[in-house]
Write a protein that binds this DNA or RNA. Structure first.
Lengths: 410, 410
DNA sequence: TGACTTTGTGCCGCTACTAAACAAAACCAC
DNA sequence: GTGGTTTTGTTTAGTAGCGGCACAAAGTCA
């Protein structure tokens, strides 16, 4: 390479980074509207810490990109003085992200707009093939159908799987109750399926509990939290996730928050990890059924456990079993509080049902067993979003647009 | 307040934020020189992702601020082509941070320049008064003396204490073996002492293990790690710290990484936390002495444990006790790996000595008991810096300068 | 009806960059 | 040596994003 070529190459790189930068307040502004924290340009001005002129220009540019809508008519807030402001909202017919989820009961596809709004859903089938390519092909086919029906532009696609996803390979290490091979290249397979379906935009894959936590942080019970811990149990096993400063903490190889093997009952039942009394085997739906002396029925472990808890909580055997699980869960959460010191905890699946059955008991155990817990106590909440893993998968696909709207769409 | 005053107030705020911002590449550039990652302007150019013109201007400005030095004579790297570059280094007689540390054996004060270089040290006394104000007053007096002797400008002061520090109050919750009252307002007291001594600049207070981790991340065994976990034990109890993306993770109220109460031996000895077999009471120096059947001597638990380990490792009773502790420590670290998934682990105090006694055994236990650990294994290293808590305390004081050199010094 | 409050806009200028050409200082090959 | 190549540093010109400021708009309150 001669000197001229080197100079040109360098110049090209610089040009690209410049174009990719765009107006730097654009991304933060879109994120504020996306998470519902900027209902007007005046609030946007304050939240961004810029002048009104800049906030106005930024909002206008986002509107021109088709991402947000600025009301033509001003609307005064009740009991407010001064000039009424024009409301900001996400655009009605703007672009969408394609979200896909695979779980024990089947799969699901949806289109998710800004603000975490689910625009359209495809029910998906009820059984899961042993071949990931087969399943993901079907899911994407359903998603592509939704895109054709609605005619919306697609910014990218995200997939939620019930498995730890190793970084940076994107392999599913333990696809729980999916009959998929451990170590399946889900990220690569998903990307191939999306490309083959002719859908544009980048693709992303993540663990379902991680993505649920991300969704709850942006649009659900986790809004405003700085250090958010989520713990959830589906049919078997326990999943955890941590959102720090608005970003998922997945660890250096994507395997963080494997919280299932905290010891919560030293003399408890043996766990496949080699230890005893792990959170995983002591607080999942099967543990609940076992504690009640109930045989697993045909309806699914989680459904059965939730139903018994809701309908028969008055019966001593159910109540005792629930309290046992609450105490063990509390012990596990206290351990996590000592290590992570979150400012909010959100529970999903059966753990959510246990919280709702006796919130005081759970909070008391966590406060009692966490260091310095007596002098405060972390808020423990139930998750609030429907299909939060699906919305979280869409968040991944939206992220490039939130980081740099002009670069991703212009 | 009338309209004009409101406009003026707003204008003042905006002006200040503008002045505080300065050249935005200035901070990152200083950090690169500070951590030794930018030996020349050419490297600085590449690391910052800016043009040579910008990197040159930024370096010139940092030199004008008296923070870095640009060699007058170019020096060619061995076996390199092209024009030789001028070396960059931290300024020799530039400003310093005042660092203070309180521990069981006394206290220490030092001046620390950019690059984590200790410029001057005051030995400090050997006993600790029960009154924090008394101790911190003495330590600051020693530091002020150093400042007078050297005549260096001071950018701020940092204090490391062997206790959890609650945020945002800055109280020491468990000042271990200091005979200080739990809940002492150390941050406030320290700030008062610094102000009373006529030392300018902001003040900071943090836990000693946290600060050691920060120092190791910037200047020691943790350089280049993205998710760095540090675990250390002094005389009693175990401390932990986590550095994520170059920033300390202290949790929402400063109490994160209280790793001492992970269960590592279900039928172990009772712990003051109410549980049994906690890492705290199973892997500290006292546990080691107890396992060997040795009575604590007059030299201090840590010193005694380290000496026995170093001098008598060949004796079966010492070796067996060490292996027991290594196994328990490995179990605790594996638990942390499952939750945090760090890409590096650094050990200090007796834990460091245990690692160095039998590194293979410790690594094997961690790999065996962490999920998916067999297919990789986290690097486990000994800490490398002398006085890393002291250097870490200085890092706190340097941080405002690293964030915005012009705003902090101009 | 006017005074006040808040929101939104147009214009000007500053500043931290990029772009591009030039200059300098080493190496190599002949 | 001499010239070409590679890398580093500098100069000059230009620009994008944002702050400062004055003004306009649209409501409430007395």
């Amino acid at each position: 390479m001669n000197g001229k070529a080197a100079t040109r190459g360098e110049a090209h790189l610089s040009t690209r980074t410049r174009l990719e930068r765009g107006r730097t307040a654009l991304g933060p502004a879109l994120e504020l509207v996306h998470t519902g924290r900027a209902p007007t340009r005046a609030v946007l001005t304050a939240e961004l810490g810029v002048t009104r002129a800049t906030a106005g220009a930024v909002a206008a540019e986002l509107e021109a990109l088709g991402l947000i809508r600025i009301d033509a008519k001003p609307s005064a807030a009740a009991g407010s003085q001064g000039r009424p402001s024009h409301r900001l909202a996400v655009a009605e017919a703007g672009p969408v992200a394609l979200a896909a989820q695979v779980h024990a009961d089947g799969f699901r596809a949806a289109l998710v707009g800004l603000g975490g709004h689910i625009v359209a859903t495809a029910p998906g089938c009820e059984t899961i093939d042993a071949d990931p390519a087969q399943v993901l092909g079907s899911v994407i086919e359903a998603g592509a159908q939704l895109l054709r029906e609605t005619g919306r532009r697609c910014v990218g696609a995200g997939l939620a799987v019930p498995s730890a996803v190793a970084e940076p390979e994107g392999t599913a290490l333990n696809p729980l109750h999916l009959a998929w091979p451990a170590g399946a290249q889900v990220r690569e397979i998903f990307a191939d399926c999306v490309r083959d379906a002719g859908i544009e935009g980048p693709t992303f894959t993540g663990n379902d509990v991680n993505l649920a936590a991300l969704a709850e942080h942006r649009h659900g019970a986790g809004r405003g939290a700085r250090d958010l811990l989520c713990v959830a149990t589906g049919h078997r096993g326990v999943g955890g996730a941590l959102v720090l400063d608005g970003k998922l903490h997945t660890g250096s190889s994507g395997l963080a928050l494997e919280v299932g093997h905290l010891t919560v009952r030293p003399e408890g039942r043996p766990c496949y990890c080699g230890s005893r009394g792990c959170l995983d085997v002591e607080t999942d739906p099967l543990a609940f059924l076992t504690a009640m002396g109930v045989e697993p029925g045909p309806e699914g472990l989680l459904q059965q456990a939730r139903r018994l808890l809701a309908e028969h909580y008055a019966e001593p055997v159910v109540r005792t079993a629930a309290e046992e699980l609450i105490d063990r869960l509390g012990l596990g959460l206290a351990g996590l509080v000592n290590i992570l010191n979150p400012d909010r905890i959100i529970l999903g699946g059966l753990h959510r049902a246990l919280l709702e059955a006796d919130p005081e008991r759970l909070r008391a155990v966590v406060a009692d067993r966490s260091l310095w817990g007596r002098s405060g106590g972390v808020p423990i909440l139930a998750c609030t979003l429907d299909h939060n893993s699906l919305v979280g998968a869409a968040e991944l696909a939206w992220q490039p647009v939130l980081d740099d709207p002009l670069g991703a769409l212009g």
